[in-house]
Amino acid sequence: MRNVESALDQLDRFTDEPTKQMLRGLIKRKRKYENYKKQSFRWQAAALICAASFCLFVAWKGYGKNSILGELLNDSMYMLWILSAAFAYSTAYFFKKKEEKAEADFHKLRCEIIQKSTDLWPQPEEWKSRETVYKVMKQQYDINLYFESK
Rank of each mutant, 00 (worst) to 15 (best):
M1I: 09
V4A: 11
L8I: 07
Q10R: 15
Q10I: 06
L11D: 07
D12L: 11
T15Y: 01
D16Q: 08
E17I: 12
T19S: 14
K20C: 02
K20W: 01
Q21A: 14
L23A: 03
G25V: 03
L26F: 03
I27H: 00
K28S: 05
K28V: 03
K30R: 15
K30V: 04
K32T: 15
Y33C: 10
Y36F: 15
K37N: 11
K38Q: 13
K38A: 08
Q39D: 12
F41S: 12
R42C: 03
Q44L: 06
A46H: 03
A46C: 06
A47M: 00
A47Q: 00
L48M: 07
L48S: 05
L48P: 00
C50K: 00
A51K: 10
S53Y: 04
F54S: 12
F57P: 01
V58P: 01
V58Q: 08
K61D: 05
K61I: 13
K61M: 11
G62P: 04
G62Q: 08
G64Y: 03
I68N: 03
L69G: 11
G70M: 06
G70C: 05
L72T: 07
L73I: 08
N74Q: 12
D75T: 10
M77A: 13
Y78A: 08
W81C: 14
I82Y: 04
L83V: 12
S84M: 14
S84R: 04
A86F: 13
S90G: 04
S90M: 11
T91Q: 01
T91E: 01
Y93G: 02
Y93M: 05
F95L: 02
F95I: 00
K97Q: 12
K98T: 02
E100M: 04
A102P: 03
E103D: 09
A104R: 13
A104F: 11
F106V: 03
H107W: 06
L109Y: 06
L109D: 12
C111E: 03
E112S: 02
I113K: 01
I113Y: 01
I114N: 09
Q115I: 05
K116M: 09
S117H: 01
T118V: 10
D119N: 04
W121S: 00
P122T: 05
P124K: 09
P124L: 09
E125I: 10
S129Q: 13
S129R: 06
R130P: 01
T132F: 07
V133D: 00
V136K: 09
M137E: 02
K138H: 11
K138L: 14
Q139R: 15
D142Q: 13
D142V: 04
N144D: 15
L145G: 11
Y146S: 09
S149W: 08
S149Q: 14
S149I: 10
K150R: 14
K150L: 13
